[in-house]
Computed example of a mutant assay.
Amino acid sequence: MSKGKQTRDNILNVAFKLASENGLESLTIGELAKQCGMSKSGLFAHFNAKENLQAAVVEYANEIFIQRVIVPARADKCTCYKEKITALLNHWLNWNQSFQGSCMFLDAWREKCVNQTPAQQVLKQAIESWLSYLQIQIGKGIENKEFRSDLDPIQATFELYGLYLSAHLYHSMYGQDESTKRFWLGVERLILDWHGSD
């Protein structure tokens, strides 16, 4: 790995931690340079603009998301799609809680949901990719005759995401234990409905 790549990765790692604590919009070239022990001009040379920095941080966050959520679920010894989806949801919820109940993707989306900044474009692609991945797993469960044949993977994913958003809110209001309990009660009911009477 080149020295430039190492420096850039270190910057993104520090930026990711700062954004996780204070939100993506809080990132500035000046504060990040201070935290990295660099000059503003030295850090600026890697990204050229705050918007490019934010987009790079979202890309970096998505790579970490894949490593923390999708890769571990693939490594779990799941014998059916119910187990695989449950594993994905477990790692997904842990991802949320690792930011003290404040998912960086949700926060970043809320901060500038109207403007199509570079960060917003990368963020949209990351979320769409994750939604698509969930839909594919549910679709495979249908093909495998594990879930009922008339189940709509898009609607099922929509409802799962609704539970995730609710867990995000409840974590902030009532704490992790209550949030986790309500999340899994909702997931159990959803998956029971997916099986139906087929």
Rank of each mutant, 00 (worst) to 15 (best):
R68D: 07
R68A: 07
V69Y: 01
V69C: 02
V69W: 01
V69G: 03
I70A: 09
A73V: 07
R74H: 12
R74C: 12
A75M: 15
D76M: 13
D76R: 10
C80F: 06
E83S: 11
K84F: 11
I85Q: 02
I85N: 01
I85C: 03
T86G: 05
A87K: 03
L88Y: 06
L88I: 06
L89T: 05
L89Y: 04
N90F: 13
N90E: 15
N90K: 11
N90I: 13
H91S: 07
H91G: 03
W92E: 13
W95H: 08
W95A: 03
S98F: 08
S98I: 06
F99H: 11
Q100D: 14
S102Q: 14
S102W: 09
S102R: 15
S102P: 09
C103S: 10
C103K: 04
M104P: 03
M104W: 01
M104K: 05
F105M: 07
F105P: 00
F105S: 05
F105Q: 04
F105W: 03
L106F: 14
D107M: 13
D107F: 06
D107L: 11
A108L: 02
A108F: 00
A108Q: 01
W109F: 12
W109I: 04
R110W: 10
R110K: 14
E111Q: 14
C113P: 07
C113D: 14
N115R: 08
N115V: 05
N115P: 10
Q116Y: 06
T117K: 00
P118Y: 00
A119T: 03
A119L: 02
Q120R: 03
Q121V: 04
V122M: 07
V122Q: 05
L123N: 05
L123K: 01
K124L: 13
K124D: 13
Q125N: 14
Q125E: 15
Q125T: 12
A126C: 09
I127V: 14
E128Q: 14
E128C: 10
S129R: 13
L131Y: 13
L131W: 12
S132T: 11
S132P: 08
S132Y: 11
Y133F: 15
L134D: 07
L134C: 12
L134H: 06
Q135L: 09
I136A: 15
I136M: 12
I136P: 08
Q137C: 10
I138C: 03
I138R: 00
G139L: 04
G141M: 02
G141A: 01
N144V: 01
K145E: 10
K145W: 05
K145Y: 06
K145V: 01
K145C: 06
K145H: 05
E146I: 00
E146Y: 00
F147S: 00
F147E: 04
F147D: 04
S149K: 10
D150H: 07
D150C: 09
D150T: 07
L151V: 12
D152C: 07
D152N: 09
I154D: 14
I154G: 12
Q155D: 14
A156F: 01
A156H: 03
A156P: 02
A156T: 02
T157Y: 05
T157C: 10
T157M: 06
F158N: 13
E159Y: 09
E159N: 08
L160F: 05
Y161V: 13
Y161C: 15
G162R: 01
L163H: 08
